[in-house]
Design a protein around this nucleic acid. Structure first.
Lengths: 126, 126
DNA sequence: TAAGTAATGCAACCAAATTGCAATAATTTT
DNA sequence: AAAATTATTGCAATTTGGTTGCATTACTTA
């Protein structure tokens, strides 16, 4: 699985993630590329890119799936794996924050995955 | 707003939250009470209970809205406001963990809300 | 117990996401 | 470089979680 061919739609979406490091929702991408490709294609490309660990996804407070480019600094070692995602209430721009959240150890619980979502006002909207 | 009458549907749902402290998804409740009430009613009761701060909600990793009873110990003071939610991969049971996550302060960012989602294996599924 | 109004059920609707399938376009093989 | 292979796409239809409008029902209170 997850062999990715360099089709035009794939290149368009990849370029999008390379240009800006923001976390983009699937619907934003569908809207942006509606003349270039079908929404099904957008969803499937995102799935494949996630499989290939080129991007990662999370669900935001509104239940929308968002995707962001995988960042080596953030994802390479275990320490930095648990980084928070931030969503600005004002401009709606979402981003990965380059800080580590320490996971508390809870007796008898095995934590495999953690997702931290912050909502507030970003530096450009003060 | 948010005056809550003790109708039969409301009592059923309240009993559900009083019995078990788990975080229940709206669809679980709809399924469970499908012979007792309409799904619209479930959604509207949940909204009202949340308004009245009897329960609180969050979106889980699958994008499902989940609700749990508000816990005074967890919600009374600001320190304990940011408690994580845990979802067991195995049994699917979700719960509020009574621990505090410290929010890192990020320069130029104002964090208003935080949501922490852990996925893993719970104590009953080891 | 009658009036006022909150709450419910039903049907229709909506948006995000998924699926099946035939057509198309990257690759790979020759 | 053409043919064969198979990943990828577009389109239409479907699914799912959730919402809305409205007439009817049932709490509450006076």
């Amino acid at each position: 699985m997850s062999i990715i061919r360099k089709t035009k739609p794939v290149q368009l979406i990849l370029k999008q993630f390379n240009n800006k490091g923001d976390a983009i929702s699937a619907i934003e991408l569908i809207e942006k590329f509606k003349k270039n490709m079908d929404k099904t294609t957008v969803y499937r490309i995102l799935d494949r890119l996630e499989d290939a660990e080129i991007i990662h996804s999370f669900i935001d407070q509104d239940g929308l799936k968002r995707y962001a480019k995988d960042n080596k600094k953030i994802h390479s070692n275990n320490d930095l794996k648990h980084h928070p995602h931030f969503l600005c209430e004002d401009c709606g721009i979402s981003s990965c924050l380059p800080v580590t959240i320490s996971i508390p150890s809870i007796p008898d619980y095995t934590i495999k995955r953690a997702e931290h979502l912050f909502t507030g006002i970003c530096k450009d909207c003060v």
